[in-house]
């Protein structure tokens, strides 16, 4: 229960970072924090049933961790990482003309 609260705190800290931080890089990092929270939640739920790595061994009768959420979140980690990479590249490109990378300035310059 306490762990769950911490995980949700991470998610919402990340989310409010996206809204409240002015700098584009900080926003991207906040989104990554939020994404970390979501990943942690999957891992936490997978560990509800036990902690043993779900690999078939001789001792079959132990409390395994649920492998499905872990497998699923692996995909999400890779996707999240590639999207963050794309965003950072865009931030690099935008930094040439907007060196402070403040989103409201970038938005003002680029909205018709």
């Amino acid at each position: 229960m306490l762990l769950e609260a911490f995980v949700f705190a991470t998610i919402f800290i990340g989310f409010f970072g996206v809204i409240l931080k002015k700098n584009l890089i900080m926003k991207i990092i906040s989104m990554d924090v939020m994404s970390t929270g979501v990943i942690a939640y999957y891992v936490l739920l997978a560990a509800r049933t036990g902690f043993v790595t779900p690999i078939v061994t001789e001792a079959n009768d132990v409390a395994y961790a649920d492998p499905v959420p872990q497998a699923v979140i692996l995909t999400a980690i890779v996707i999240g990482f590639s999207i963050t990479a794309l965003m950072l590249v865009s931030a690099m490109k935008l930094a040439k003309d907007n060196p402070t990378l403040e989103t409201n300035v970038i938005e003002e310059n680029n909205t018709p």
Binding site: M87, S90, A91, K93, L94, D97, N98, I106, E107, N109, N110
Partner: peptide, 8 residues
């Protein structure tokens, strides 16, 4: 710049 910002 504009298209990158819109995409981002």
């Amino acid at each position: 710049d504009k298209s990158i910002w819109v995409g981002l």
